[in-house]
Design a protein around this nucleic acid. Structure first.
Length: 306
DNA sequence: CGATGTCAAGGAATC
DNA sequence: GATTCCTTGACATCG
């Protein structure tokens, strides 16, 4: 059994599946109030299964930052009491919550409109977490963004646009093609932002060839002493089996290789045990599992480790 | 009811 | 310069 807190992202597949947020389209008036009821149900599920870390949907307040739908803007105010209630429940269960805005939130975009949208989104996430009265361990994870010349500088300028509340929640993650750990550490040094190390991304994109143990230590060192660091852990997807029907009866099996960065359904328990026992020896941090089978992958891994 | 199209959104790769 | 892919599920619509 790992002494690290283990979490999963967004969707609950167990218990017949629990929706992560109000997914109705804007015409049907989706609302944060509904999403919070879902989140409350998910907290019950986490309690039943002794799961203590969870990444919330980044669409809890549907369309709240949409530029053309200003009437959706006040969902946080409309749900103040409920947010405090659900936040208190998460705290009492000892559940560490986080969020990870989508690929469309690009703080270093060359487009002013896109940057402004990113600021709105990060402000919203901070407002939600603050209204839930979550502590500093509840972070908002973001990739640095697009590449090209001056990409890091653009990020720093985007960061300057953020109000303090949003800055205080923000952490940055290495991605699989543009911002390697080295690049993200540089942005961290210049901004003071902590780094979430994603091991699979690191294995996809690491031009400096930093060994895992070094990479892990470098990332953990960017966190303030009073906040427990966290990382992202996943296993690469293996080949996909395809059966091809050939003139009537004959069936031929082929193997299609997925992209290197694709997440497997489950976590490879052998690699994970090795990681915890050796790479992570003596280090204290939480682990967000990213597997297609979500909570089922977490439960399976825990079973395999016990 | 099952199949198919669509969704708010960016950026990189490819053509 | 324009199109496709990435990756993603579920709502919405249509047959």
């Amino acid at each position: 059994m790992s002494r690290h807190r283990l979490g999963f992202a967004v969707k609950v597949l167990g218990a017949g599946g629990i929706p992560s947020h109000d997914t109705r389209r804007w015409q049907s008036g989706p609302h944060l109030r509904v999403s919070l009821d879902r989140l409350d149900e998910i907290l019950s599920y986490l309690e039943r299964n002794a799961i203590t870390m969870y990444r919330m949907s980044s669409s809890l307040a549907p369309y709240a930052t949409h530029p053309d739908l200003p009437e959706f803007h006040h969902q946080v105010d409309e749900c103040r009491d409920r947010l405090a209630e659900v936040g208190a429940r998460a705290r009492s269960l000892g559940v560490r919550l986080s969020a990870h805005p989508s690929q469309y939130v690009v703080l270093n975009s060359e487009s002013e409109d896109v940057r402004a949208a990113a600021v709105r989104d990060l402000e919203l996430h901070a407002a939600l977490f603050d209204a839930m009265e979550l502590d500093r361990e509840a972070v908002v994870v973001l990739h640095v963004g697009s590449g090209g010349t001056g990409a890091a500088d653009r990020f720093l300028r985007g960061f300057e646009l953020l109000p303090d509340a949003a800055r205080a929640r923000l952490v940055i993650e290495n991605d699989d093609r543009v911002f390697s750990l080295t690049d993200v550490l540089d942005v961290s040094r210049r901004s003071g932002l902590p780094v979430v190390w994603d091991i699979l991304h690191h294995h996809c994109h690491d031009p400096a060839g930093i060994p895992d143990r070094d990479a892990l230590e470098l990332a953990l060192a960017t966190w303030p002493a009073e906040v427990k660091p966290k990382i992202h852990y996943s296993s690469p997807k293996t080949a996909v089996e395809r059966r091809k029907r050939r003139r009537g009866r004959r069936v031929e099996t082929q193997y299609v290789l997925p992209p290197l960065r694709a997440h497997a359904d489950l976590i490879d328990p052998i690699a994970f045990r090795q990681f915890v026992a050796h790479t992570a020896a003596g280090l204290d941090f939480d682990i967000m599992l990213e597997a297609k089978a979500k909570d089922l992958a977490l439960l399976r891994l825990r079973e395999q480790l016990s």
